[in-house]
Amino acid sequence: DGRLRMATQEEEELCFPQLANSSCRKLTLHWSKAVLLNTVLSFVSLSTVLLNLLIIISISHFRKLHTTTNVLLLSLAVSDFLVGLLLMPGEIFRSTACWFLGDVICSLYCYLVCQIVSGSIGSIVLISFDRYVAICHPLHYATRITLGRVKCCIGLCWLGAGFYSIFYVRDELIQPGRSKSCFGECTFVISYVTGTVDLVLNFIFPVSIIVFLYVRVFVVAVSQARAMRSHVTAVTLHCSVNAATKRSELKAAKTLGILIVVYLMCYCPYYSYSVVEVNVTSTVYASFLIFVFYFNSCLNPLIYALFYPWFRKAIRLIVTLQVLQPGSCDANIL
């Protein structure tokens, strides 16, 4: 009777009891800890989806917000929305439960992770370049940074991310499930070469560009701020309008600078650890590092809410359903 009870208990701990030796074991957590963990992670995921959806609706709906900078923010919001909608729930399911969706879906999930993350990083690089031109070369901004060019760059960015993702997960796409050690798990193991290429292309290279551009922006912004203060007593109406425009550009640069700092804080732990251990996903810290990585997508819209008055106004119009009224897209949201 005792042996039967022990055998039954062991079967309950297996993802696929019928497979016995080749089945993975379930994650054993006390029910209270499991409920708390899943509740917190699900709340973060839902918040990420809702907040970024508000940004997508705001910029897409109101014509006054159809600027080059906001279109870039829209691209970033779309990637953050997909992180909350697909990647966060997938990681919760992958790390806290048995994987019952099969090897093909696991390979597709790995592809989406790389595609969405690479698209997000590309969008942040484009945002940095946009602010660099706006602050450092304001006279050429209108001619160099047009809406058509920005949309083209965004399309190329996501297309490039798609091709890069195929390279990154090529082995998993060719042979789904090749990395798993037992039935009931979804793992992704990469070679040393692939891990090194990812570290360079998805972290070192974009971070170097971002830091270089924002150092230039910071230097020019400080000099402009000093110039504005020194001439504040002798301005005409025309000059005051120009000064207000400059202040707006400087504020946008400051806000997006905070965006970059938060991005680095969330991405650095994962990629720093990948220097020590190429296959981060195979370590015990994997889920924690990945969720810190993904948490950036939840923080971005909170930064917009704190520093962009138009976003707070847009939220009020969306929540009160005023966006459904005729002509609401022409509202002076600014």
Rank of each mutant, 00 (worst) to 15 (best):
residue 111 Y to T: 00
residue 260 I to A: 11
residue 293 F to L: 11
residue 293 F to Y: 15
residue 227 A to V: 07
residue 216 R to W: 02
residue 127 I to Y: 00
residue 239 C to M: 14
residue 317 L to H: 10
residue 7 A to L: 12
residue 269 P to K: 03
residue 293 F to S: 00
residue 179 S to G: 03
residue 87 L to F: 04
residue 199 L to T: 15
residue 94 R to G: 02
residue 143 T to E: 12
residue 306 L to V: 12
residue 252 A to W: 01
residue 163 F to A: 10
residue 207 V to S: 14
residue 109 Y to A: 04
residue 24 C to Q: 06
residue 253 A to R: 01
residue 109 Y to N: 04
residue 4 L to W: 09
residue 216 R to C: 13
residue 9 Q to F: 10
residue 151 K to S: 07
residue 54 L to F: 12
residue 318 I to T: 09
residue 155 G to L: 12
residue 186 C to S: 03
residue 50 L to S: 04
residue 83 V to M: 07
residue 209 I to M: 08
residue 310 W to A: 02
residue 100 F to K: 12
residue 256 L to N: 09
residue 105 I to F: 08
residue 72 L to E: 01
residue 153 C to G: 00
residue 279 N to F: 10
residue 322 Q to D: 15
residue 121 I to Y: 02
residue 272 S to C: 15
residue 266 C to P: 08
residue 145 I to P: 01
residue 73 L to S: 07
residue 225 A to K: 11
residue 287 S to A: 15
residue 268 C to P: 01
residue 217 V to Q: 01
residue 89 P to L: 05
residue 164 Y to P: 02
residue 118 S to Y: 08
residue 93 F to L: 15
residue 64 K to L: 11
residue 273 Y to H: 12
residue 53 L to A: 15
residue 68 T to C: 11
residue 331 A to T: 11
residue 67 T to S: 15
residue 60 S to W: 15
residue 37 L to R: 13
residue 72 L to P: 00
residue 146 T to R: 14
residue 230 S to D: 14
residue 273 Y to M: 09
residue 33 K to Q: 10
residue 16 F to L: 08
residue 44 V to K: 02
residue 68 T to A: 08
residue 13 E to M: 12
residue 38 N to G: 00
residue 35 V to Y: 12
residue 314 A to L: 07
residue 302 L to S: 06
residue 44 V to N: 02
residue 6 M to P: 02
residue 327 G to N: 08
residue 20 A to T: 08
residue 238 H to V: 15
residue 159 L to K: 03
residue 99 W to V: 03
residue 215 V to Y: 10
residue 315 I to N: 09
residue 195 G to T: 05
residue 144 R to A: 06
residue 309 P to T: 04
residue 215 V to D: 04
residue 135 I to F: 08
residue 234 A to I: 15
residue 217 V to H: 02
residue 223 S to T: 08
residue 241 V to P: 00
residue 238 H to Y: 14
residue 94 R to C: 10
residue 97 A to T: 13
residue 41 L to V: 03
residue 318 I to Q: 14
residue 241 V to R: 09
residue 284 V to L: 10
residue 111 Y to D: 02
residue 22 S to M: 04
residue 326 P to E: 09
residue 120 S to H: 10
residue 155 G to D: 02
residue 9 Q to L: 13
residue 18 Q to K: 14
residue 129 F to C: 11
residue 233 T to N: 05
residue 152 C to K: 15
residue 151 K to P: 01
residue 130 D to E: 13
residue 129 F to S: 07
residue 2 G to D: 05
residue 154 I to F: 00
residue 290 I to N: 03
residue 202 N to V: 01
residue 220 V to N: 09
residue 333 I to L: 13
residue 49 V to T: 05
residue 321 L to Q: 13
residue 151 K to N: 10
residue 324 L to F: 15
residue 257 G to Y: 06
residue 27 L to G: 07
residue 299 L to G: 02
residue 46 L to T: 14
residue 304 Y to H: 11
residue 131 R to N: 05
residue 155 G to I: 07
residue 283 T to N: 03
residue 279 N to K: 11
residue 299 L to V: 10
residue 330 D to N: 13
residue 61 H to G: 04
residue 304 Y to T: 03
residue 142 A to G: 04
residue 221 A to I: 06
residue 242 N to C: 12
residue 275 V to A: 06
residue 88 M to Y: 01
residue 203 F to H: 06
residue 61 H to D: 03
residue 180 K to V: 14
residue 7 A to R: 10
residue 110 C to E: 11
residue 97 A to I: 04
residue 119 G to I: 05
residue 213 L to V: 12
residue 39 T to D: 04
residue 157 C to Q: 03
residue 287 S to W: 06
residue 321 L to R: 15
residue 18 Q to M: 11
residue 135 I to S: 08
residue 33 K to H: 13
